Amino acid sequence: METRLLTYPEGCRIGRFVRREKRFFVLARLDGQEVVAHTNNTGTMLGLLRPGMPVLLSPATNPARRLKWTVEALGQPCGDGFFWAGVNTSVPNRLLEAMFHAGLLSWAEGYTNLRREAVNGESRLDGLLTGPDLPPLWVECKNVTLVEDEVAAFPDAVTARGTKHLHTLMRLAAEGGRAAMLYVIQRPDGRCFDAADYVDPDYAAALSEAVRAGVEVYPTVFHVREDGVYYGGMLKYRGA
């Protein structure tokens, strides 16, 4: 039985994707009308933006917010139906904490404390795990929505910030700590994981360098349902 790690807010609705406007707005058809929803995903969402496909919208928790809906996931065709690809980029950080408390971080056995949004120098990383007689374990999370030829891949757009995070992790590993990348794959059709060198060759080169420097890589699948996000297990990192 799958473990549900995150629950979506009450009142989620399914609309139909119309188009994306600029970076932060998605137009969707809901109850016969077009509504504007917020998306926090600043990537290209390459291959996901399919007019007429379902879009999962969660209601704004702040009644004063101008946009009443947030995009959680976009439907992708699969046979006669579809599957959800989760595009909310606030989810990976929350999933790290949920996995920690659920005992699903097999690679962090013995660690007893997790601090989210941990600052080191000029960088802010998603998590810092500590435990008795264990080196600090720094974790950065990335949301993965791109799959090509059954290979889940990151990034879907050039990311200088992502490359900077890898160099920070390399430094932390060289200083005697542990450093890890948690790739949160919010779609079910990837069979392995790799860097998207065809999108950002600099990031791909930095990831290979990071692995050689001792940075750990944990690609993990999550299944998006209409009631939340479920743990789906780990994928093989093809570049290992």
Results as ranks from 00 to 15, higher is better:
residue 110 G to A: 08
residue 56 L to G: 00
residue 27 L to P: 08
residue 37 A to P: 07
residue 189 D to H: 06
residue 137 L to I: 10
residue 8 Y to K: 11
residue 190 G to K: 10
residue 170 M to F: 11
residue 200 D to W: 01
residue 179 A to T: 14
residue 22 K to C: 10
residue 38 H to E: 15
residue 185 I to R: 02
residue 149 D to G: 03
residue 111 Y to D: 09
residue 128 L to Q: 02
residue 136 P to M: 05
residue 63 P to T: 02
residue 68 K to W: 06
residue 203 Y to D: 02
residue 237 Y to H: 15
residue 14 I to N: 00
residue 187 R to G: 00
residue 119 V to F: 00
residue 171 R to D: 13
residue 140 E to T: 13
residue 216 E to H: 12
residue 55 V to M: 03
residue 235 L to H: 07
residue 130 T to P: 02
residue 136 P to D: 01
residue 163 T to S: 13
residue 167 H to I: 02
residue 154 F to K: 10
residue 131 G to D: 13
residue 186 Q to C: 13
residue 187 R to A: 03
residue 39 T to Q: 10
residue 175 E to D: 14
residue 128 L to G: 03
residue 110 G to C: 08
residue 47 G to S: 09
residue 224 V to S: 03
residue 220 T to S: 06
residue 151 V to K: 14
residue 97 E to N: 04
residue 184 V to Q: 00
residue 177 G to P: 01
residue 144 V to S: 04
residue 191 R to N: 07
residue 13 R to K: 13
residue 165 H to R: 13
residue 90 S to M: 07
residue 113 N to S: 13
residue 238 R to I: 02
residue 77 P to T: 04
residue 96 L to R: 00
residue 177 G to A: 15
residue 24 F to P: 01
residue 147 V to Q: 09
residue 70 T to S: 14
residue 48 L to F: 02
residue 230 Y to F: 14
residue 57 L to S: 04
residue 186 Q to H: 04
residue 128 L to D: 00
residue 53 M to D: 04
residue 131 G to L: 12
residue 163 T to F: 01
residue 177 G to M: 02
residue 28 A to R: 04
residue 122 E to H: 10
residue 70 T to Q: 15
residue 147 V to E: 12
residue 132 P to F: 04
residue 8 Y to Q: 10
residue 163 T to C: 11
residue 174 A to W: 09
residue 220 T to G: 02
residue 30 L to A: 02
residue 212 R to C: 13
residue 37 A to L: 04
residue 127 G to E: 03
residue 180 A to W: 12
residue 36 V to M: 13
